[in-house]
């Protein structure tokens, strides 16, 4: 990675825009992740049941059902047709992510992202350069495996080991040994392979990337002519392969970052001193 020596990522942006603006999207994302977790915890901790359940399926204000479409799809693959409540919930959630971007789930909602971002931060600070790498296709392999296993065994096999739903559930319902999985993912990402979990292995992320393939809200390299090749966006991006086609494309190519694997985390906007990036609907060119 062409990173300038000992330079903090986004240093120029911090100098030019000020620390707060250069961390705006990161702070908003943390607020969103912790806020959503906090809403789930209002009931168990303070007895105020705005939302019941967990991120696999929930009921808001005793009326609005929400269901994780990935978990829902697994139940369909077992051959079981669930009742209407859970179907409605899955449709609502899938539509939402279809509009805002599938992997917005990963960067704005999923608490595991905080763990893997922290691991990546540690990796940068300690300058860890381990070279083991997983294929970014691995997650699609696991997505297929999770659905095939559901249909072969007739049960939600992936949910027996899914670290994402496990961590989400145990944060809300009381911690078992799932902190071991949190530690495991942290160690994997920090010391074994960069962005291994969220960027290479997680089939939930893969699933949401498919929902987000055609989503409406996208990051746009609208001012790509201003790019000074500082490479900070590539260094900070959890899916750096998605930036290049838009940022470094020729004049006819779309400046929209079209990959479903862009998580719309907007850290590129934060770290860019030249204001190359912006968030827009996809129809702008």
């Amino acid at each position: 990675m062409a990173k300038k020596n000992n330079k903090v990522i986004g240093q120029d942006a911090i100098i030019k825009k000020g620390w707060l603006v250069a961390h705006k999207w990161l702070l908003l994302r943390r607020l969103s992740q912790l806020g959503i977790l906090g809403l789930f915890l209002l009931g168990p901790l303070f007895g105020y049941w705005l939302i019941k359940g967990n991120m696999s399926a929930s009921l808001t204000m005793d009326t609005i059902p929400l269901t994780d479409p990935f978990v829902f799809l697994q139940t369909l693959f077992t051959g079981y047709l669930p009742q209407a409540t859970v179907i409605t919930g899955a449709v609502i959630v899938a539509l939402f992510y279809f509009i805002v971007g599938g992997r917005v789930y990963c960067s704005w909602v999923c608490p595991v992202n905080i763990v893997t971002d922290a691991a990546d931060w540690l990796r940068r600070v300690l300058k860890i350069k381990t070279s083991l790498s997983f294929s970014r296709m691995g997650r699609y392999g696991l997505l297929v495996v999770s659905m095939v296993l559901a249909s072969v065994t007739g049960m939600l096999v992936w949910e027996l080991v899914n670290p994402v739903t496990m961590i989400q559930r145990e944060l809300v319902f009381g911690m078992g040994l799932s902190w071991l999985f949190i530690a495991g993912i942290f160690i994997l990402d920090a010391f074994v392979s960069r962005r291994a979990w969220c960027g290479h292995l997680c089939p939930m992320g893969a699933f949401y990337s498919l929902i987000g393939q055609l989503s409406v809200i996208k990051v746009n390299t609208i001012n790509r002519h201003l790019c000074n090749d500082c490479m900070d966006c590539f260094a900070v991006c959890p899916e750096p392969q998605v930036i290049k086609p838009a940022l470094k494309g020729n004049a006819e190519s779309s400046p929209v970052i079209n990959s479903g694997n862009c998580t719309n985390c907007a850290r590129c906007i934060d770290v860019c001193a030249e204001n190359v990036f912006t968030i827009k609907h996809r129809f702008i060119n």
Binding site: A57, T67, P82, G154, L156, E159, T165, R169
Partner: peptide, 17 residues
């Protein structure tokens, strides 16, 4: 048990109620 494991999404709404 097997039918149950194919249908339960582990949301915990039963536990809460």
């Amino acid at each position: 048990e097997n039918d149950f494991l194919s249908a339960c999404v582990r949301c915990g709404l039963c536990v809460r109620d």
